[in-house]
Design a protein around this nucleic acid. Structure first.
Length: 424
RNA sequence: GGAGCAGUGGCUGAGCGGCUGAAAGCGACGGUCUUGAAAACCGUUAUACCCUUUGGGUAUCGGGGGUUCGAAUCCCUCCUGCUCCGCCA
């Protein structure tokens, strides 16, 4: 959420921000309602002042004087209800418009309409050239008996799968390895609840907007989180933190649920776009400072790069353009790993910087020692590893001519020393 | 699922329908004292918004609604926590 004062001061900035992000929000309507609400509230405040003044004198009065005072109060009450009606009518609209105002992207973010206009910043690692005809991850997985999509679909519908035997082991190995990297880097490991109330969804910026992307338990009015970002970022929701607690750094491992509504027919092949996967996510909550936010944005990106390099996966870093940024994101880097079967670099990580957008929505603050003021925190997050999506490059890049898979060195200790996945 | 109890400031904890934005204690901060620290003593110490020059005003005692001239205090409802019973793991 954006500070209404900033919108009042410079509505043009937020119109432009929305336009750049391809987001609909009627700033003119918002400022008009805001002005009306403000004046109505000022009137109400004046009436309340008078009412309080008269009300306080009542116990000292008696007889006619008292009757007079009561009559005056009755008149004020009539005026009051007129303004109250106005507030009641306009406030909900103002509130919901406020939830739609976009965080302006940083100036250096490339302007663009969608992900096709993201800008590649650099490439890391060598893309493997095969001297045999490589299989894709589905062929490899099926032949090795470690992936079973058919039965996944039979039991759970489209975009579902089973991982079996060494496939399941590899999946857990990569997650556990990623978590251990984060713990070594000073992040607090977290196991989190995933059935989230609407407040947590709104606080992180997923609602309103991503309801269609979310599985909702209608009976219990909770939502299945699509990422541990939700519980991790909202962990201290509504609290006032001590400055010395910051930065807070979390690494959470969780299952992630996504409906993929509107993606029908897109990426239907294999384990790329699926309804349920597991992910280690990193979240940083820091002070209200652009410099700090920038510093930790680079840090969470580099954490994930450490994991990718340890897995020896070729990848590139992409600066996400304005049209591909979420409502609350000021800047975003994607990491895209090389996936031979897709003959392209494809997103495996997404590092987002929000400034105070999320913190403001969830009222997450800290006491600033210099000013003694309560300031909104800044929040950031990034994928550490998401599996099975990352199994696509791992399986495809580590495959051998005989159809076996060499287990990445750093994962071998997590698989009981197993060096190769072969047909059993 | 049934029965009961509770939710007050950073924390603990008082609170009669008006004198309570809220006692008291702790903590924190500033000062006196001290070579320094501790102790002791003195003082300060919620948040948001509106108008403004110092300053003034409004709202907030889990959320929302209601009764009343006036609600932390009475009523309704929701949320949360605790206890007992039942059921299940």
């Amino acid at each position: 959420m954006i500070d209404i004062k900033e919108i009042r001061e410079n509505p043009q900035r937020f119109k432009q921000a929305a336009k750049n992000k391809n987001i609909e929000v009627d700033i003119d309507r918002l400022t008009a309602i805001d002005a009306e609400l403000l004046s109505a509230k000022q009137q109400l405040q004046e009436i309340a002042t008078e009412k309080n003044r008269i009300g306080k004198s009542i116990p000292k009065l008696a007889g006619d004087e008292k009757q007079n005072a009561l009559a005056q109060l009755a008149k004020f009450k009539a005026d009051e209800s007129q303004f109250e009606e106005k507030v009641k009518q306009l406030q909900p609209e103002a509130d919901s418009l406020m939830m739609l105002v976009a965080q302006p992207a940083d100036d250096i973010v490339p302007i663009g309409k969608d992900d096709t206009e993201n800008v590649e910043l650099r490439r890391e690692g060598q893309v493997r050239k095969f001297d045999f005809k490589p299989k894709d991850h589905v062929q490899l997985g099926v032949d090795l008996g470690i992936i079973d999509i058919e039965r996944g679909v039979k039991l759970a519908g489209s975009r579902s799968y089973f991982l079996k035997g060494d496939g399941a082991r590899l999946h857990w190995a990569v997650l556990q390895f990623a978590m251990d990297v984060m713990i070594a880097r000073g992040y607090t490991p977290m196991s989190v609840p995933l059935l989230m109330r609407d407040e947590a969804m709104r606080g992180t910026g997923y609602y309103p907007g991503s309801e269609e992307q979310t599985y909702r338990m209608e009976k219990d009015e909770v939502n299945l989180a699509g990422t541990a970002e939700v519980p991790l970022t909202a962990f201290r929701m509504g609290e006032i933190l001590e400055e010395k607690e910051l930065p807070i750094k979390f690494a959470g491992m969780s299952t992630c649920f996504r409906r993929e509504a509107g993606a029908a027919g897109k990426d239907t092949y294999g384990l790329y776009r699926i309804h349920q996967f597991d992910k280690v996510e990193q979240v940083v909550i820091c002070k209200n400072s652009v410099e700090e936010s920038n510093k930790y944005h680079e840090e969470i990106l580099s954490n994930s790069e450490v994991v990718m390099r340890a897995l020896e996966l070729p990848y590139r870093i992409v600066a996400v353009c304005t049209g591909d940024l979420g409502r609350g994101q000021a800047k975003k880097y994607d990491i895209e790993a090389w996936m031979p079967s897709r003959n392209n670099y494809c997103e495996t990580h997404s590092a987002s910087k929000f400034y105070e957008f999320q913190a403001r929505r969830m009222n997450l603050r800290y006491k600033d020692s210099a000013t003694k003021k309560n300031l909104f925190c800044h929040t950031l997050n990034n994928t550490v590893i998401a599996s099975p999506r990352v199994l696509i490059p791992i399986l495809e890049l580590y495959q051998n001519a005989d159809g076996s898979i060499t287990v990445p060195k750093v994962l071998q200790p997590y698989m009981g020393g197993l060096e190769q996945i072969a047909k059993s």
